[in-house]
């Protein structure tokens, strides 16, 4: 049997860089299968010399349901801050459909820069 090779650019996982995410919701709204869920809250930051405090979004939760995801990559394409990225690998199996819903803890491991 010939050796099977997984292409290095395989689109098998999507990773998240939570530090780059601004909770802008673009990926959530563009996802055709509604498999991304995001929760955030606002936080006021007062910078020295600023007239008014700045409102920043703090990411609380970010989940991708890989049971619904069809790996179209629209979320990766539309993210203005490159917080989502394709990753290759085969970490996808789970014992139940709920096990395919992955949050920040797992998605950050799949973000290519942090994985290497």
């Amino acid at each position: 049997m010939t050796e099977r090779v997984i292409p290095p650019n395989a689109h098998s996982l999507i990773g998240l860089n939570p530090d780059a995410c601004t909770s802008c919701m673009i990926c959530v709204r563009e996802c055709p299968v509604w498999c991304i869920d995001l929760a955030s809250h606002t936080h006021e930051v007062t910078e020295e010399g600023a007239r008014r405090p700045k409102v920043v979004h703090v990411l609380d939760e970010f989940t991708i349901d890989f049971g619904a995801c069809m790996f179209c990559g629209i979320c990766v394409d539309v993210c203005p801050f490159d917080a989502l990225a394709w990753s290759s690998g085969l970490d996808q199996s789970a014992h139940s459909a709920g096990g395919l819903v992955h949050g920040i803890d797992q998605l950050v491991k799949w973000f290519p820069a942090s994985g290497s």
Partner: peptide
């Protein structure tokens, strides 16, 4: 029938005077 995850505003601010967004498709 399914709630759209994109419907919730990121700021979670009911006062935000945004147009109600509609899911693609």
């Amino acid at each position: 029938l399914t709630p759209w995850p994109g419907d919730a505003d990121a700021s979670d601010d009911a006062k935000a005077n945004r147009r109600r967004q509609r899911a693609v498709g």
